[in-house]
């Protein structure tokens, strides 16, 4: 098999196994681990995980497709997850969406041509009092306006052209 966990990841997985009485329960943590290791969970990765967890490949595939946070294709360096649910909607999420689509030239589900930004519309991120909210990779950016978002995106673009400091 071509893909495989690193030594460190395997060790981490071994620890995860001890948390559950049934190895199948390690599937979600294993997929998280795989996504961290490989960036996304390709079919090949899913087969590897299936073998690791001891489950049929199709069941792993079902799970990976069910949960929206597992990437089946490579996301951009900055994965923009725009909340579009009610509180964010009431406070201007649609403007943010238009802004992203126009300035970055990406539609939901797409990655910008330079591979820098991928765009995903998501449902309630659980930060309704600071709406509208966008999650970029693992961080929340809240109480946004188009201007604020513009500054953030400019910053990210600038960041990525130089050394990577992440977000």
């Amino acid at each position: 098999m071509a893909v495989q966990f690193s030594e460190a990841a395997l060790k981490e997985y071994e620890e995860i196994v001890t948390r559950y009485p049934d190895k199948k329960a390690t599937l979600l943590p294993a997929l998280w681990l795989a996504q961290r290791e490989f960036g996304y969970v390709s079919d090949e990765v899913l087969e590897y995980i299936a073998q690791l967890v001891g489950m049929p490949a199709v069941k792993v595939y079902e799970v990976a497709e069910f949960y929206t946070m597992f990437h089946k294709k490579k996301p951009g360096k900055y994965h923009l997850q725009l909340c579009q649910t009610i509180s964010c909607y009431l406070r201007g999420a649609e403007d943010l969406r238009s802004y992203i689509q126009e300035t970055l030239q990406v539609l939901p589900g797409e990655t910008s041509a330079d591979g820098l930004f991928s765009f995903q519309l998501v449902e309630c991120l659980g930060s309704c009092h600071t709406a509208p909210v966008i999650k970029i990779n693992d961080e929340y950016y809240d109480s946004l306006t188009v201007e604020k978002l513009d500054a953030i995106i400019r910053h990210l673009k600038k960041n990525s052209s130089g050394e990577d400091h992440g977000v």
């Binding site: 649910t85 509180s87 449902e123 309630c124 659980g126 930060s127 309704c128």
Partner: peptide, 11 residues
């Protein structure tokens, strides 16, 4: 797993 729209306090 707080996900109900409008709910954000558990966090």
């Amino acid at each position: 797993d707080e996900s109900e729209p409008g709910t954000f306090v558990d966090r």
